[in-house]
Design a protein around this nucleic acid. Structure first.
Lengths: 127, 127
DNA sequence: ATAACATTGCTACAGATGTAACACGCTCGC
DNA sequence: GCGAGCGTGTTACATCTGTAGCAATGTTAT
């Protein structure tokens, strides 16, 4: 996960986390409208994300279906770490409770996030 | 402050916040080495930031000196807002106390940040 | 004066990101 | 069998960001 997801990529990851593996068309139906992306744009993003390893592409009966490679907690914790280091020069972990209100996180997600944020050097492998 | 500062730009802003108005050479002496930037690179960043309005350029006896346009709290609060919205779909404010440990923030800075984070739509004008 | 050095403006180029069109082949309904 | 539609690969282009060199001008010490 060397390359942090861009805002557009995050939007797609959220759809995949929430709805599970999706085809390009499905992703487009879920966010294309909201994001005002053309189907082509959605497909380009999906392709690039697959190249980067952010998502995995698999063919189901010939149809390309995409799955998030990393768990929500994993990606979010990495992003929080990057953010706090880059913006606040913070090394110590941030309390996950700060994000407790996120509509993205269930109690379990939050607990997982908390755990990842408290890990020393983020070398954890869990997906 | 429409455009959020990039990581490199943040590095420069931090120098200006901490040491006050600086010339390109001074900025370079403060972070060029650490960031491994050539003097040219530092200057390019400074020029672009001035174009964007992130910093102001003024001539002091013919020497170009740069000053941060927005206060630390102002920029940091904007970045926190953007981050929590983009990454966590959060609308409600995040407790500034999450960043209390930041070596960048004095007690006053923290209080100011807290205030800005709690403002409704971030239309505040204070600099 | 002049050589050395600093400061500035201009230019360059690669990679990342946003945004999208185009053409080709396959399939399904008629 | 054939055209409409769908999924796919390929290509394109503008902007932003990272990174930096070059030439000209201004300044300064000897």
């Amino acid at each position: 996960m060397q390359t942090a997801p861009s805002p557009s990529e995050m939007a797609i990851l959220k759809v995949l986390w929430h709805h599970g593996p999706q085809s390009a068309r499905e992703v487009q139906d879920q966010i294309g409208a909201a994001q005002d992306w053309s189907y082509s744009t959605t497909r380009t993003l999906l392709t690039r994300m697959a190249e980067k390893g952010l998502i995995a592409r698999e063919a189901v009966h010939g149809l390309a279906v995409f799955t998030a490679t990393y768990s929500k907690a994993k990606v979010l914790s990495a992003m929080v770490r990057t953010f706090s280091a880059q913006v606040f020069d913070l090394d110590a972990p941030i309390a996950a409770s700060a994000f407790a209100e996120s509509p993205l996180l269930s109690a379990d997600d939050l607990a997982e996030l908390e755990g990842l944020l408290n890990e020393p050097t983020s070398q954890g492998e869990g997906a």
